[in-house]
Design a protein around this nucleic acid. Structure first.
Lengths: 191, 191
DNA sequence: ACTAGACTAAACAGATCGGTATACCCCGCC
DNA sequence: GGCGGGGTATACCGATCTGTTTAGTCTAGT
């Protein structure tokens, strides 16, 4: 999976890093390949030699973002004892949005820009959300919830709501709000 | 405010309706003014005579969407007795997303595409979210909540989470999930 | 009758879009 | 010592982008 990172040539890496920053910061359709190539100090030819198309570059961007998020979330969560882990996802989220999520969820934003169901990035987005839902379900079980499907949906919804609201500044601390709701939902599900 | 609707010329109305459909369905940056003019059976000149710029057309689109949503929400909610109204917003949301929100919240999607803080549409987006938060706060009070600020944040977060998840098909019925969480939050806040 | 405004038709502008082509350099490997 | 891969430089392609311009038609109100 993440062998892809090692396989990337130095120029390829620079392209992907630059693309990630620009795509997230300005939107996918608002950023052209010319700009990415220029900012990465690379020719368009190199970009197309490495990634083949803009679509593929977008998919690669989301795939790597997904990998980074999963790695961050799981390592943070596993610092907590099993019973607290479902709730700990909100602490991990708090730190994540604080350092690199000022503009909402990169996957939700990408989905907003890519209505075409055939776009390769759509698969990556769907995978990301399904994985998170499955992970939350598992953590609910570890926390002693016997019927984890409902609570998993609830926690996922709270995650998404918090991330979206974090981009719009209308609620002071959306992640804290979500965490509190999650705590009550878990207490209730555990009994 | 909504005198604007009556003031619009027939061609202007067609342009705005067409733009609304295309902007929401395909994304703002993915739709050009040429396409809008063509689909509306109108010249680009007319479009620019009426709206001045694409930016302004985008803002007009969001403003009208906001008006429609507020009108729908308030009329639906007011059918319920005051004590049930905060919760009734989720029933109104359920029907709204069922009939015209398959691709998530139009405002959140627009925010994802318009990172420029100076874009006139950003104001409309911010107003929309602030209004909803204020409205929910008021309904919380009517439902007997004495400290409505916390619950208002919670309900807003649940609204956003449900709307986002509705666009991605990973949870069966996100609005129902949100409604249940809202119900518990309100019960708790009322005591 | 005159006029103002809403509108069409169509060309034009300069920039940018995703993507390709040609030609060349450099370096490690067999 | 030749060869292939990663790379640069640059020009090009046709299409599309937002926005403007010129010229002229139709219609309602006074």
């Amino acid at each position: 999976m993440e062998a892809r990172r090692d396989v990337l040539t130095p120029a390829g890496r620079r392209i992907l890093d630059t693309a990630a920053e620009l795509f997230y910061g300005q939107g996918i359709n608002a950023v052209g390949v010319d700009l990415i190539a220029k900012r990465a100090g690379v020719t368009k030819k190199t970009l197309y030699d490495r990634f083949g198309s803009k679509e593929a570059l977008v998919a690669a961007y989301l795939r790597e973002r997904d990998e980074r998020w999963r790695a961050w979330l799981t390592t943070e969560v596993e610092k907590a004892p099993p019973a607290d882990r479902a709730l700990a996802t909100f602490d991990a989220l708090a730190e994540w949005v604080r350092r690199e999520n000022p503009r909402g969820c990169g996957f939700v934003n990408a989905a907003a820009e890519l209505p075409d169901a055939g776009h390769p990035a759509r698969q990556v987005i769907a995978d990301q959300k399904r994985w998170l839902r499955g992970y939350l379900r598992q953590l609910c079980q570890e926390a002693g919830v016997t019927a984890p499907d409902g609570p998993a949906d609830e926690l996922l919804l709270l995650h998404e709501g918090a991330t979206v609201l974090n981009g719009l500044s209308v609620v002071a601390d959306p992640v804290a709000t979500a965490r509190q709701l999650a705590q009550r939902a878990l207490e209730r599900a555990r009994t």
